[in-house]
Design a protein around this nucleic acid. Structure first.
Length: 260
DNA sequence: ATGGTAGGTGCCCTA
């Protein structure tokens, strides 16, 4: 089975592009981020025609996360278990159970810059995610937490660490919070299977970054140990970062995880 | 050279 996570940067603008990719690749589970659609605007029928169920948390304009799956996601929750969690305030988190797997689709705040209040919000959001996942880890044994983390876990996950010094996505605090989340027993499966590979998942639209190879690996799939043992391959489909006859690409490419 | 491009909203904000 194939699991995919993809920040599509507006599902409205990207629908034909995404549907073409899904029809060609036929993933069992697809986590989406940045749908930029209101809750009830998700194109349920378009995915139904390809044989998929959908669960969406959206607010319009910005954010918006979804789980698309060949079997119906059960026990869907959006944002938070209790109101103490900040995750409910924006449409950046959705979870659902598919078969025996608890799936979380997350869109971590960007942070903008280290001096921006949005960076503190990012750190707080990650702490809340950690608390939520600690509870989830006690309830479920097979867990996937996937999405746009807006964090490059290590220096090998960016094209030029020197150029990014002092900016968001690579700061010590956010990397520490990510590693604390992984300490709950979640494995960065792409890195685990490809220990020395420079394979990015995002390239800025500007300045020809994609063609110059100036990207980052910020889209991650974190898997619980038993699940990760079943994975045979994890890779980024960088072809999906190129313009196709179905339209223009997102600035992110899909991360694919293949199970036996 | 603190730029550039893309998307949504509506004449700027976010990434």
């Amino acid at each position: 089975m194939k699991f995919v996570t993809w920040n599509v940067n507006s599902l409205n603008a990207r629908l034909a592009f995404v549907l073409e990719w899904v029809a060609a690749n036929s993933p069992e589970i697809l986590c989406l981020q940045e749908t930029k659609l209101k809750e009830d605007e998700f194109p349920v029928e378009a995915f139904e025609e390809l044989g998929y169920f959908s669960a969406h948390s959206g607010q319009g304009r910005w954010n918006g996360v979804a789980i698309v799956s060949k079997t119906q996601p059960e026990s869907v929750t959006k944002g938070a278990i209790t109101e103490e969690f900040e995750l409910h305030k924006e449409a950046r988190h959705i979870s659902g159970t598919i078969g025996d797997i608890r799936v979380h689709s997350v869109y971590v705040p960007n942070g903008r810059s280290l001096s921006d209040p949005h960076y503190l919000y990012k750190l707080m959001w990650l702490k809340n995610l950690k608390e939520l996942l600690a509870l989830e880890s006690a309830r479920y044994s097979d867990i996937i937490v996937a999405g746009d983390f807006n964090i490059a876990p290590g220096d090998e996950d960016v094209w030029d660490p020197a150029a990014l010094e002092g900016s968001t996505h690579v700061s010590q605090e956010e990397r520490k919070l990510l590693s604390e989340i992984m300490d709950l027993g979640l494995i960065d499966i792409h890195r685990a299977l490809n220990p020395h590979k420079k394979e990015f998942s995002w390239w800025d639209y500007r300045n020809g970054a994609f063609h110059k190879g100036e990207g980052m690996r910020i889209d991650l799939a974190l898997l619980s140990p038993n699940l990760s043992k079943r994975v045979i391959r994890a890779y980024v489909d960088r072809n999906a970062r190129k313009t196709s006859r179905a339209g223009k690409p997102s600035d992110h490419a899909p991360l694919v995880v293949e199970f036996n």
